[in-house]
């Protein structure tokens, strides 16, 4: 493996870990503003993680090893997935890293473990969360794959690195169709990161909750890992969107200045996107669970339409 790539691995992972908690807080802040509140500090998530790390872990007496392993595996899977989406620097792809399907399935691996952990303690909330998470992830899957197929079709590659390299080369979006794909990606992001209108990340004890229900039994350092993993996942999906739609500034060669500029630009772009997500969330109400399939169906037909237009155009 090229030293470039090793460097990339280290750099990307560190950056994503460092930046991830920021967006969660930013979204919260924006939502607070729209509600006329001041909201927490933008560094609140960092504090929370730090505090959780110091707390003791409480395991349920009925839980098995699944609960013990899940935070670790989830974190590892999400971090590996994060490697597939270069945030600020795109190296030459190596060994199939960057494969768009592998990326999806790494996220699925994390979800699989989380869902099992939700069932492990035998609590009703966990079970409900797992059940809903798996259901939603299943029915959003066709949309996701269609969108990714559209990406592969537009860029004529199945590797995210190549896609980014190509879009970074032009600096702007390569075809207008990408804007439409971007909208679909945005919906996927909302669903995958459990945001309104699909899920409500704010509540912990409502019958509507999904993701929070699954990790209800987690505590201490494990909860910290889960929260961090969720943040990383958000970041990665945001990066995917950002680097496809507004790729300017993305570094393709390994220079210090280039990296710095790319990092700063990414933070700015990310903050804006987080703001948009916050606004979007504020303007929406949580949907009834069984109305979600129709939302997804809409997203699906939207994405399919894009491809069909592209195919026949």
């Amino acid at each position: 493996m090229a030293p470039d790539f090793v460097l990339y691995i280290i750099f990307n992972t560190l950056f994503v870990l460092a930046a991830a908690p920021l967006w969660i807080s930013v979204i919260k802040k924006v939502k607070a503003w729209t509600q006329g509140r001041q909201g927490p500090s933008v560094f609140q998530t960092y504090y929370m993680v730090a505090k959780l790390l110091r707390k003791e872990v409480v395991y349920s007496s009925t839980s098995s090893r699944i609960t013990r392993f899940t935070p670790l595996v989830t974190m590892a899977a999400i971090l590996t997935a994060a490697l597939f989406v270069p945030l600020i620097f795109v190296p030459e792809p190596a060994g199939g890293i960057g494969n768009i399907i592998l990326f999806l399935y790494l996220l699925a691996l994390a979800r699989f473990f989380m869902a099992l952990a939700g069932l492990d303690a035998g609590s009703t909330f966990g079970g409900m969360g797992s059940s809903r998470e798996m259901s939603i992830s299943a029915i959003i899957e066709p949309t996701t794959i269609i969108v990714f197929a559209a990406l592969a079709f537009v860029f004529r590659t199945t590797n995210i690195f190549d896609m980014f390299a190509r879009s970074a080369a032009t600096g702007t979006i390569t075809t207008p169709i990408l804007i439409l794909i971007g909208i679909s990606l945005f919906i996927i992001l909302i669903v995958e990161t459990s945001r309104i209108p699909v899920d409500n990340p704010e509540t912990h004890l409502e019958l509507t909750m999904i993701h929070e229900g699954m990790i209800l039994e987690q505590s201490g350092r494990n909860l910290a890992l889960m929260e961090l993993a969720a943040a990383v996942k958000l970041t990665v999906l945001m990066a995917l969107l950002i680097n496809l739609i507004v790729p300017f500034g993305l570094a393709t060669t390994l220079t210090a200045t280039g990296l710095l500029i790319a990092a700063v630009l990414f933070v700015v772009k990310g903050t804006i996107l987080a703001g948009i997500i916050g606004l979007f969330e504020s303007s929406m109400a949580k949907m009834r669970f069984f109305q979600l399939p129709s939302l997804f169906a809409m997203a699906f037909f939207f994405s399919a339409l894009i491809i069909i237009i592209e195919v026949f155009a």
Partner: peptide, 30 residues
């Protein structure tokens, strides 16, 4: 490679936790 990366990530996370986080554990009811 992917498996290796997964293992490395897990190992690193575990190491990081080992040095930074509290190691206290308690068994309780759900």
């Amino acid at each position: 490679l992917v498996g290796l990366l997964l293992a490395v990530m897990a190992a690193l996370t575990w190491t990081a936790l080992y040095f930074t986080a509290s190691r206290a554990e308690r068994i309780s009811e759900t």
